[in-house]
Design a binder for these strands. Structure first.
Lengths: 384, 384
DNA sequence: TTCTGCTGCCGGAACGTTCCGGCAAGTTTC
DNA sequence: GAAACTTGCCGGAACGTTCCGGCAGCAGAA
């Protein structure tokens, strides 16, 4: 001791000035001395624990405020065996999607509200040591990602956004009703006069893509529409997506029955239509296998805007919608109907669930539904 | 003590299993006991400090390896008054740009290489306390951002990507020759037959935008081209950018002289052309104020792709280029000529400079140039 | 011999916090 | 009126690390 005896400090300039440049660190001992109590009482008063009279509590709080006391995180976490930090993993393949940027900010914002920091974990970096965190948020984990696997093996409390398409599941899951919302979107397309909506979607590594695909298949079965699907890779380029769209456009014109067209015309487009479901004759008004595509739903982020010019060139007959809303879809010409996944709120919801798991407020195994919204825009207006 | 006497642990399953689930925390005391030395010697041996014989050093290292010893960050940082974490700020306005996502990953990757964590700091969150970090990276700080101001006031070592357009400067700066590269781009446009390239650029809150604008003006002055500039807001929507493009397209057709056209036709497009520079008669072959725009350079990320359809409708006469490369420009149809800012490497470079500042290897005031590249694509091919 | 210096190792304190147990004084209970 | 309980406060230990100072043992110098 004796290194800083004065204690009385007074307010200083600036916003973070206290205790940062090391001329006079304000510890809980400084506060206690200044308030005329012991360090225990000061600690109790500030954290609302222990037994402290209201009067002294107010005094201590006032003094702490005045001195600009900021608790030392390292000391606190050393004592409490926690870190005050949560880890956040987002798959690097999808870096360019603005969805993840918003998601990340949602997590950071919510964590800040709980006075937690957020440490980013990328799939790229090989980690020599386990992350120094109290828990983990996994943003849309991809099945088979080795980093995700090892993160789950840490035993740390974990929340994933969408389910993990692997063997084990996170302690908490925040998911959205993508299949249901896609159903609404498809019904909307039907209502505007479309008869045969097609789908471009990525593979089932992501729970989200799998849900979208499943929702589409079930809707087709229920409505008696012959499915028209093209799978693309997860980080599909514009060319790949356009090739898939062209392949879908080319199908349905040929002979009815087993789907016609040339599967795999370009870019690995895999057509799955024209099966038994197309023979459902109860609802003859909707699209059988011989009906050409007159609406296209693009699942991957950014795919819809990539495809838009192609559809326009093809005559503008095909309605267009995206499963991921973004500035690009909002501002396209015409604006593109899309499902707003509300990524920022999704991130906040994941962080919140994690904190509840950490505090014991929520039980492991908790699942929460994150509401999403269908934004109907001009790209799916009825065609003249 | 006495809580875990066995000590000998042996290798375990999994990758992060050591010391994470709390059944048997392995501290430096465990290692010391197992190696038959004191905790001081163990610590010295592991960190290469103090005086330890080579023989015992090897023993201790081997034991630590075997037990999977991971130093407790909180304890270390409590003792050393550091945190093992750096803060990363990116302006929230620009969240949707994939540039920042890549930048962030670059920082995280480089930090991981130094065994540092990265904590995100957003402009949105109001911070009750100074961030618990050893240093800061500011990604393209905007002038007047209060969070940036207060971060700079912390006195923490700081590196900014691009200069801070405010009074004080960060301790380290990583910047790119945007003005020079724009000159190359404009020369390229001239070489493909363009006579009057226009520019859409955001305001001078960002050093990057200011550099681009300055580079354009200087190039125009040097080449005797009448400038044709439209300013948009930093987070310009597609509509705003398109309105700016339309305004630029409308100019140059009218009476020669003071620029003609209708300034501010839509979306706040502010035209600055037609001044004294346009009267430079030494180089009559290039574009005077009466020459219509035949090439358009879009500075804001994403602006070029938003404008592309408009230019196509207008006859495809106008060449198009972007100051920010991205998946969207690469994959556009036709692919758009763009400046690749190499964001991931920029982020890594910022982090690296910060670590050198922290270790004293680099001096405060260091500036480093981050190389960028011009990617020439079909959108600026010579017109028939 | 004694003094000095070097090597290899170690005990203990310190970093700033939380929390267990305890102690006076006051209040209720039987 | 003593026992039991409550209130308000406190000292000290502990978290796991780093580092200062010290202490033997040995070697070389005076």
């Amino acid at each position: 001791m004796g290194r800083h005896e004065q204690g009385a400090e007074g307010a200083r300039m600036g916003r973070y000035d206290q205790g940062v440049h090391a001329d006079e660190p304000v510890t809980i001992l400084t506060v206690a001395r200044e308030a005329g109590v012991s360090k225990t009482t000061a600690s109790d008063a500030l954290r609302g624990s222990g037994r402290v009279s209201e009067r002294t509590r107010e005094t201590v709080v006032a003094v702490a405020e005045r001195l600009g006391y900021v608790p030392n995180g390292s000391a606190r976490h050393l004592r409490k065996a926690s870190t005050g930090t949560i880890g956040l993993h987002v798959p690097e393949v999808l870096t360019r999607s603005s969805y993840y940027m918003s998601f990340v900010f949602g997590v950071v914002e919510q964590a800040a509200r709980h006075d937690y920091d957020v440490t980013l974990i990328t799939s790229g970096q090989r980690r020599a040591r386990p992350p120094r965190v109290d828990g983990l948020v996994l943003g849309d984990p991809l099945g088979g990602d080795p980093v995700v696997e090892s993160l789950m093996a840490t035993g740390l409390p974990t929340v994933s956004c969408e389910r993990f398409p692997g063997s084990r599941q996170a302690d908490g899951v925040v998911w959205s009703e993508h299949a249901l919302m896609l159903t609404r979107l498809l019904d909307h397309l039907l209502a505007t006069g479309a008869r045969r909506p097609g789908l471009i979607v990525a593979g089932d590594e992501s729970d989200w893509a799998a849900s979208v695909h499943r929702g589409y298949q079930e809707w087709c079965a229920g409505r008696g529409v012959a499915p028209l699907v093209s799978r693309v890779s997860f980080d599909a380029t514009g060319d790949e997506v356009r090739a898939a769209a062209r392949a879908l456009l080319g199908r349905g014109h040929g002979a009815p029955g087993t789907g016609g067209g040339t599967p795999g015309t370009g870019g690995g487009a895999l057509a799955t239509g024209g099966g038994a479901l197309a023979r459902n004759d109860d609802t003859p008004r909707t699209g059988g296998a011989e009906v050409p595509m007159d609406a296209l739903v693009c699942a991957p982020a950014g795919a819809a805007t990539e495809v838009a010019p192609l559809l326009r060139e093809a005559g503008g007959r095909v309605r267009l919608a995206s499963c991921v809303d973004s500035a690009a879809t909002r501002q396209a010409d015409p604006p593109i109907t899309a499902i707003d996944l509300r990524p920022r709120e999704a991130g906040a919801s994941c962080a919140e669930l994690l904190f509840e798991l950490l505090s014991g407020t929520a039980q492991p195994g908790t699942e929460r539904v994150h509401p999403i919204e269908l934004q109907i825009r001009a790209s799916t207006a009825p065609r003249p």
